[in-house]
Amino acid sequence: MKIARYQCAAGSERLGIVSRVSGSEMLVDVAKAAASRGVAGTPGSVMALIEGGSAAMDATREVLAWAEQRQDPCWIDDPHGVEWLTPVAQRSMFCAGRNFGRHLLESKAGASASTLHSDFPTGFIKLGRTLVPHRSQVKRPADVQSLDYEVEIALVLGKAIDAYSDIDPASAIFGYTIFNDLSARECQLREMQNGMLMLGKNYPGFGPIGPYILTADEVPEPAALKLWLKVNGELRQHSDCRDLIFDFPQLVAFWSRFGLVPGDLISTGTPEGVALHHKPDPQAWYLKPGDHVQAGVDGIGVLETFIV
């Protein structure tokens, strides 16, 4: 299933499932369809679906199949007309760094990066309050001229897991969504000279994410997922997850030392092509007000962001 979290006109959170209606992708409002059918126990939110496990998934699939047969407009929403929310509410997000092979190589091209390694996953934390939904306007801070893009895949956790859990890390993945790790490079690079990284990744709005979660059962071969990013229609990044240094289960196993809970997010890192490593001068490649950024993962969708 492809899942959406959005807001209706009355302001309440809705759980939507993507369905094809008259040849177009539309959103079936699960709670409204379940109410029309007169069944109880169907999850009414994304977190209720995640935390409800297989029983919640089965109930949602049953309601979806019933609703698709009837296609009543009262429970169908147009994705172009809804107010998007982040796929999950504010959660912890653990971000891998330099986890695509070719991106690691382009990073090593700089003399200051000569000590980079890939012996174990490394990264940083993205604050939950930094995350913003599909089609958000993100303001470039006044003190930032080197605003960079990074398309990534974010894993959505469906089970609690820690360093002592006796479960397969892959089974803890509920689904996959799209993430654009916006970065203030001038701040980030100075922080990294002190062996730290925080502000350069966590200005307000620096975490566009969404619009959909594609459930893990729909992705039999995660390494085949293809991701790409365009700025004003120009392709800047394109790769697939076969170039990952640490795959999805390895990232879950490593970050589980924090003690992960359902709804937590883990990002993969980004492939090559970021503005920072364009030669000889990256300045023309950085994002500026007026830019339209599209971050895509084939099979999941396209995450749009507008820089203002």
Rank of each mutant, 00 (worst) to 15 (best):
G110F: 14
V39R: 04
K279S: 15
G44R: 06
H103L: 09
F254T: 06
A55Y: 02
M26A: 14
V293S: 00
G259S: 12
Y286T: 06
A172K: 04
I173S: 03
L287C: 05
T122C: 13
R135Y: 08
A56E: 05
P222V: 02
D181C: 09
V21L: 08
R129G: 13
E51Q: 15
L265R: 05
L105R: 10
M93Y: 01
G52S: 10
A284W: 07
H278K: 13
I266Y: 02
Q71L: 12
S19R: 07
G38D: 06
V63K: 02
T177Q: 02
G38E: 07
F306W: 15
P211L: 09
S107K: 05
W285R: 10
A295E: 00
A223T: 07
W255I: 14
V144F: 02
S114E: 14
F258Y: 14
V274T: 12
Q193C: 06
C74V: 14
R14V: 13
E272P: 00
I245D: 05
Q145V: 07
E150I: 12
S24C: 11
H117R: 15
S54M: 05
E218K: 14
S183F: 01
Q145A: 10
D72P: 07
L244A: 08
K226C: 14
L131F: 07
R37H: 13
I266T: 02
A89I: 11
I167N: 03
H238T: 05
L265V: 15
G269S: 10
L235N: 08
S112G: 06
A59H: 02
D143S: 13
M26Q: 13
C95D: 04
F120N: 10
T177F: 00
D72C: 13
G53L: 08
V46E: 02
I266A: 03
M93P: 00
E191T: 12
S256H: 10
Q294G: 00
H134W: 12
A224P: 03
S146G: 03
K159D: 07
M57L: 15
M57W: 01
P271I: 09
L116M: 11
L105M: 10
A34L: 09
D291G: 01
E234V: 11
H80G: 12
R236Q: 02
M192P: 00
E272N: 04
A109C: 06
A223N: 05
K126A: 08
P289E: 05
V39C: 04
L116N: 01
V88C: 01
L85N: 01
V151N: 03
F94R: 12
L214K: 03
G16I: 06
A67F: 01
A89T: 14
W75L: 10
H278E: 11
E272D: 10
A56G: 08
L182W: 03
E234N: 03
D281I: 11
G101C: 02
A59Y: 06
N99L: 08
K230V: 07
E13T: 15
S136Q: 04
A89D: 12
Y176V: 12
